[in-house]
Each structure stands twice: as structure tokens, then as C-alpha cells.
């Protein structure tokens, strides 16, 4: 696909996003950039004086970070395959029509 105005604007925003991340790293030294869901849990525990979830996890729980990142990567890969397949299909179809 041709590089147009859209791609350039997207690239600029991406660069700004990455720059803001590096700024965030400098501004928060030692931060591991943990998830916000965990941070919210801490707030809940704090304000309630130790909230205990009334029910534990029901589904499968990944035993560790490795399995978790596998499943997240799988999720992204499945999505990317579907998107790529249909864009390729339509592009090829448009060319042969």
C-alpha cells in the first residue's frame, strides 16, 4: 500500500507514544509498569481495610507469567490472522475483478 498522509500521521503519533513511554520511564524510576487492574485492587484493599473477594477465580489460572504471555500472544495471533486473511482476500479479489 502506498504511504499516504494517514500513514505519516499514524507514524508521528506512534513516535510520540513511544517517546511518552520513555519519558514515563524516566519520570517513574524503578517502576515495573504493572497493570492498572492490580493497582485498582490495591486501592480497594486499602479503602476497605482488607477487602476479600467473595469468590475466587473460576476459570483456568495460568500457573505463571510464561503461560500467561503464551495465551495473550495466542489471542493476538488469532486476531491478526483473521484480519490479515480478509484484507488479503479483499485486496486480491479487488485486483482480479
Amino acid at each position: 500500500m502506498k504511504i499516504g498522509k494517514g500513514e505519516i500521521i499514524f507514524a508521528v503519533i506512534t513516535v510520540l507514544f513511544v517517546a511518552s513511554f520513555f519519558y514515563g520511564m524516566a519520570a517513574n524510576p524503578g517502576s515495573e509498569f504493572g497493570g492498572v487492574d492490580g493497582a485498582a485492587e490495591e486501592v480497594i484493599t486499602d479503602v476497605t481495610g482488607g477487602y476479600e473477594p467473595w469468590i475466587g477465580n473460576i476459570g483456568f489460572e495460568p500457573p505463571g507469567g510464561e503461560t500467561e504471555s503464551l495465551l495473550f500472544a495466542l489471542q493476538a495471533a488469532i486476531g491478526a490472522v483473521v484480519i490479515g486473511y480478509f484484507f488479503g482476500y479483499y485486496k486480491g479479489k479487488g485486483r482480479s475483478d
Binding site: 517513574n28 509498569f33 492498572v36 486476531g79 484480519i83
Partner: peptide
């Protein structure tokens, strides 16, 4: 599916 699997770091020091 793709976007909700990506945990991105933000300027605030969390993801």
C-alpha cells in the same frame, strides 16, 4: 481480540 491482548505501558508508569 488483538487490541485487548496488548498491555501497553503508559506515561504514568503503569500498563
Amino acid at each position: 481480540f488483538v487490541l485487548s491482548s496488548l498491555k501497553l505501558p503508559s506515561v504514568t508508569g503503569s500498563s
